[in-house]
């Protein structure tokens, strides 16, 4: 993605690497970390699935948002409103 809006504070010190690399449609596709020394594909799959299942549980939590979460929802909504107002 394009990070050229970054200021000079260092927030996007990692901007010279792509922050959104190829995202496969296949849910079972392995993260890129499998090419790291000392990591097996099976271990990566187990950890990936573990984190993912926990995140899915959180995502599907039916409880109403906390005030902090609502602030985040409102901010995202404003962001998307500006995003989608620009085209289409």
């Amino acid at each position: 993605m394009n990070d050229d809006w970054s200021d000079t504070t260092g927030e996007r010190a990692f901007a010279d690497i792509p922050t959104q690399e190829y995202v496969p449609e296949d849910r079972g596709a392995l993260p890129r970390v499998v090419d790291l020394d000392g990591v097996s594909e099976r271990d990566v799959r187990v950890v990936d699935a573990f984190f993912h299942e926990l995140a899915l549980d959180a995502s599907e939590d039916p409880s109403p948002p906390t005030s902090e979460e609502q602030d985040g929802v409102d901010a995202i909504a404003q962001f998307v409103a500006r995003l989608t107002a620009s085209a289409g």
Partner: peptide
């Protein structure tokens, strides 16, 4: 979106030490 988040998290974890994240408001 969930899939994109998952991949971004892995990607950021992979590059964590080489490219540490610094919040703009802290760095200001």
């Amino acid at each position: 979106v969930r899939n994109a988040i998952r991949w971004r998290a892995w990607n950021d974890a992979r590059h964590a030490k080489r490219f540490p994240h610094v919040a703009w408001n802290t760095a200001a």
